[in-house]
Design a protein around this nucleic acid. Sequence first.
RNA 1: GCAGCUGUAGCUCAGUUGGUUAGAGCGCCUGACUGUGGAUCAGGAGGUCGGUGGUUCGAGUCCACCCAGCUGUACCA
Length: 534
Amino acid sequence: MATDKKSKLKARLPRGLVDRGPGEIAATQAMIDKIRAVYELYGFEPVETPAIEYTDALGKFLPDQDRPNEGVFSFQDDDEQWLSLRYDLTAPLARHVAENFQNIALPYRSYRFGFVFRNEKPGPGRFRQFMQFDADTVGSASPAADAEICMMAADTMEALGIPRGSYVVKVNNRKVLDGVLEAIGLGGAENAGRRLTVLRAIDKLDRLCIEGVRLLLGEGRKDESGDFTKGAGLGADDIDAVINSIAPTAASSAATSPTSSLKAESASFSVSGGEAILRGPEADILGYISNRRQYFPDSKAYQTGLEELAQIAALCVSSGYDQDRIRVDPTVVRGLEYYTGPVFEVELLLDTKDEKGRPVRFGSVGGGGRYDGLVSRFRGEPVPATGFSIGVSRLQAALALIGEIDTTPAPGPVVVTVFDKARLADYQAMAATLRKAGIRAELYLGNPKNMGNQLKYADRRRSPCVVIQGSNEKDHASGTPHVIVKDLLLGAELAKLDKDREDYLARQEEAQALVPEADLVAAVRKVLQRHGIG
RNA sequence: GCAGCUGUAGCUCAGUUGGUUAGAGCGCCUGACUGUGGAUCAGGAGGUCGGUGGUUCGAGUCCACCCAGCUGUACCA
């Protein structure tokens, strides 16, 4: 082993990865339980797949020489076949369903959670390993399947303690945008690249506002660091057509203010064009959709997309899910070359500050959509599917910041201190007695040379109390051996005001009970009850 | 990937126009206060100043390159 300082190994975690302690693990577990309960309620059943798949099953091309492992972590098996760590839970599910097609009753509702891996630049709230919780319905092309996913997403947010109004499930349909792109002459395989550029620009609306998107649709945009992003190179009329399709109220006006993105969002749930507004949310959203139908009447994709949206909206509304929970939002893009119809996104609307007092936007904590091509890749026949994933890690960070997650560490075990090294067996027996009574307990395993260190240790362990037995207690005047049960939490309270040692020690005496050894369990229970530790 | 900013003790940071043995606070370790967390007091450990090369009599300080981190941007199934 290397012992000199120069050659010693530096302990370090690769960037974008985190270790997680007991508090975070407990919080994650609590979230998972809540999510699972909602999914089970909707009739979904668990299925688990491994973290590693054949690279081609994930739909990625083999890593090439220039940019190996772009986006995914990949490596070669003994037989030289490429394997990858999964980057989501949907593609592996598609593989699972295709591989076990005979044994699965369609439509198949399933859920799973686990870590996924992305080899990308990490950032605040973005990691290279993070947890997703995924649910999918495979084998149904019905908009009812999509609507159900949306309602389930809304229920899940509320089960997690996010109040109604602090989140929104946004729904859009890729066919609508496809129709618009087709109408402005970007149809066909030869325009795939420009279509992507347009979709990416739209996806940035929430950050860049209307004007930024306009630039990206046209020549391009320079950001504040001076970096230039090339645009889609559309003409002015085409840009207007695209902007109009995602934000009708902003299309004709030269929106430049930072609030223009808000206008775009509000357009998604209000009827534009002065049309008579019927009462109630149902009329509102369906009215909006029917209003949109007047554009691109010849585009089949556009009209089909709106029809599907109308059906999803109607289904949600008829089940009581109004626009305070689920909304149609024409700016949602997601999964550029993945989703084939409806797309969903769950956004947190919380207004919070980080440790440095800067405002934080959580944005999307979950998303999904219909992916009719993903299973059929493996089979000759079409297999429609729709699903939804929650970013558990990101959502947990958000919940922690708004105080919805209890971050105070759990209390530690009772610590049995070692006063006399020769009597280790006796102390060990006390710990065993406590454990038999169902009380978390441990024997002090460090160097027991003085009591101060042992108490300091117990304090840092967050122990509610310690057990002490020295010769004074062992040889108690009554003839029966006694023990001291010292309440550390109470002791900390009592000690606050005193600054001289005599007072301090006197106060410490108050926080401890001298009881016969036979009453050890009862005395410890009393302390636990005092502090509400079950 | 591109751009900007930043790298000094475990942590947060000082360190003057380049000038002796690079400092502080907190934390950590040892001890004192009869067998008790805190407070107090007395000691102690810990840094080739991110790395390499250069300019200079002399570099933590100036220059070049590299590495790492942060922020923005691009990509993001």
